[in-house]
Simulated scan of single mutants.
Amino acid sequence: MTTEPIGVAVVGAGTMGAGIAYVFAMAGFDVHLVEPDAARSRSAVQVMAKAGADAVRRGKADEDLVRRRLGAVTLTASVDDLPAGLGLAIESVPERLEIKRAVLSQIDRRSPGLIATNTSSLSIDDLSASVSDPGRFVGMHFFNPVWSLMLVEIVRGDATTDAAIEASKGFATAIGKKTAVVADHPGFATSRLDLVLALEAIRMVEAGVSTPEDIDRAVTTAYRHPMGPLRLSDVVGLDVRLDIARHLEKALGPHFSPPRLLQEMVARGDLGRKSGRGFYDWSGSTDF
Rank of each mutant, 00 (worst) to 15 (best):
S123R: 04
G208F: 09
E200C: 11
L122T: 02
Y223N: 02
N118G: 07
M150D: 15
S210R: 08
A207N: 13
A174E: 09
G176H: 05
A129P: 03
S121M: 10
L199Q: 07
S120A: 15
T119P: 04
M150I: 07
V196P: 01
D125N: 14
A116Y: 00
F171C: 01
V152E: 00
T160I: 11
A183K: 11
T190C: 13
D126P: 01
T211M: 04
T160C: 04
I154T: 06
V155R: 08
P212I: 10
I202H: 08
G170A: 07
R192M: 10
T211G: 00
H225P: 06
H225D: 09
S132F: 09
K178P: 00
G187A: 03
T211I: 09
T221P: 05
R136F: 01
P112D: 01
A222M: 11
S168Q: 08
S210C: 06
M140S: 12
A164D: 03
P186D: 08
H185S: 12
R156T: 05
G208R: 01
A167L: 13
G139N: 07
D133A: 11
K178L: 13
S210Q: 02
E200R: 12
P229R: 06
A189D: 00
A164R: 01
S210P: 07
G170L: 08
S191M: 13
G135D: 10
R203H: 09
V131G: 03
V196Y: 11
F143H: 04
S148P: 00
I165K: 03
I175W: 03
L151Q: 01
T161I: 11
A172N: 06
M140T: 14
S121I: 07
V138H: 04
V205I: 14
G157N: 12
K169L: 03
F137K: 06
A164V: 04
F142S: 06
A222Q: 07
I154A: 01
R224G: 04
A180M: 12
L127M: 14
L122P: 03
R192Y: 07
V131P: 06
L195Y: 10
P134N: 02
A189V: 15
D125Q: 06
S191N: 15
S168C: 13
S120T: 04
I175P: 05
A222E: 03
K169N: 03
R136L: 03
A201F: 12
S111D: 14
R217K: 14
E200M: 08
F171L: 08
S191Q: 14
T179S: 14
E213F: 00
L149P: 00
A159R: 15
D133M: 04
D184R: 01
H141C: 07
H185L: 11
S130L: 10
G176N: 10
P229D: 11
S128G: 01
P226F: 13
D133K: 07
A159D: 14
D194Q: 15
E213M: 02
A164F: 10
S168M: 14
F188N: 00
T190N: 10
R136V: 05
G157P: 02
P145H: 05
D125H: 04
